[in-house]
Design a protein around this nucleic acid. Structure first.
Lengths: 227, 227
DNA sequence: CAAATAGTGTCTATAAGACATTATTGG
DNA sequence: CCAATAATGTCTTATAGACACTATTTG
């Protein structure tokens, strides 16, 4: 049985928080089609080099952003005859979450950041892919610890709450939020480490417990609404 | 840029309920590799025929089971150098939910059904794919109307509750369940149609409201536990 | 009328949200 | 001491679950 030509690519939706808003990293394409146009970082799968598509996504991210071990998860596969002028293509999309602090001038050279709620036009079906990633992150954030991957290693609870609020797009009740974080049982206070310097009571710094560095903590109920 | 050979396939996890247990449809392979072995129905994408992988999955299901418009959703993509003896492959997996009543002798000729909690060994990574589908269905069922796609057009609330219980693997509180179904606001009683014949009060027959025939109704909170 | 199960009312337990209070800093 | 906000206590409200009762059928 012979198979017609199918082009297999991997695209990565790299999300981070900038000024309290979800941003996606775009990369200016350096070849046709859409040469010079900003689009999702991505490229062909290299069967000799990549042991699977997850590996390919990791390599893509490393090559184009310099970031080496972010939270990375498969989003879904986008396919068909019309999404790419080159023909029948498959793009296996992944999404990555990284702390903004991790994106320094060096690693981000050549990257553009755009707020996901203010996207211009993008080539291929990249807008749709980004929307799917944002929907996924919103949804997962509402019942898990996913947003901690947008924070650095250390963070205060008030800051983490701001991150949740930015991702979910709604205010959260402080008491409920802290109860939830307590239930999820994934954070530990860093003994004696406080965030000082402002004219108020200093905030305790927390970090992820070791067991959760590379996985999520999931809540049975939603992480709620209400200021 | 040249791409090494990647084989692109689609596999379908067809799930239905038999004797109160989730079953998966397997199909005896008629060519190498694993000729004659029971595996997930699937096959190559036909770029000339399929406009995208969803289309390919629909075709696969039609060809191998005769079923034409089930609930069908992309599950994820399984890939790599070692999952298939033919080489570096990609399988875009879909899962389908169908009422057992829809699988008659004619359509199911050549299909085998196995309980998903009593699976034998399967070729490729098909066991892993089925497990991912079951996990997805369990998870989605806990906060949506997904299990109605395992029922026929008409069903009683006690029967629907049994379906939820079979999928979730736990008993559900009757009052809470009925409250939830009421909230989801996706069912309508069929005027004057009751399920009779047993030595007890007859049960009202319901159907999906037209607006929900092809999409889910989603609850903010979980559909709960407790007998 | 007995057995069976559908369907509903209602009390209790649990979880979420509102609001207020105390704690601790810089200026 | 004042302003700011972290952290926590506590009351109210919303939702889920337990349990019991009524309704309607067959035999």
């Amino acid at each position: 049985m012979v198979q017609g030509t199918i082009i297999c690519t991997v695209d990565v939706v790299l999300l981070c928080l900038r000024e309290q808003a979800l941003n996606v990293a775009l990369w200016r394409r350096d070849h046709a089609p859409f040469d010079g146009v900003a689009a999702l970082p991505g490229g062909f799968i290299h069967p000799e080099e990549d042991s699977n598509t997850f590996d390919a996504a990791r390599r893509m991210l490393q090559e184009k952003t310099g970031i080496s071990s972010p939270y990375l998860e498969q989003l879904g596969t986008f396919s068909g005859a019309v999404r790419d002028p080159r023909g029948w293509t498959i793009s296996i999309a992944y999404y990555a979450l990284v702390p903004a602090s991790l994106i320094n001038a060096e690693t981000s050279s050549g990257l553009l950041f755009e707020r996901v709620d203010q996207l211009g036009n993008l080539p291929f079906d990249h807008k749709e892919i980004i929307q799917a990633a944002v929907d996924r992150v919103r949804n997962k954030s509402s019942y898990s610890s996913l947003p901690v991957y947008l924070c650095g290693e250390q963070f205060t609870l008030p800051y983490l709450q701001e991150v949740y609020e930015a991702v979910l797009g709604e205010l959260i009740n402080k008491v409920s939020f802290r109860r939830k974080m307590d239930e999820l049982d994934m954070l530990e206070p860093i003994e004696g480490e406080m965030e000082t310097g402002r004219a108020n009571r200093p905030a305790q710094l927390y970090r992820l417990k070791a067991a959760y560095r590379h996985r999520l903590s999931v809540s049975g109920r939603a992480i709620g609404k209400g200021g």
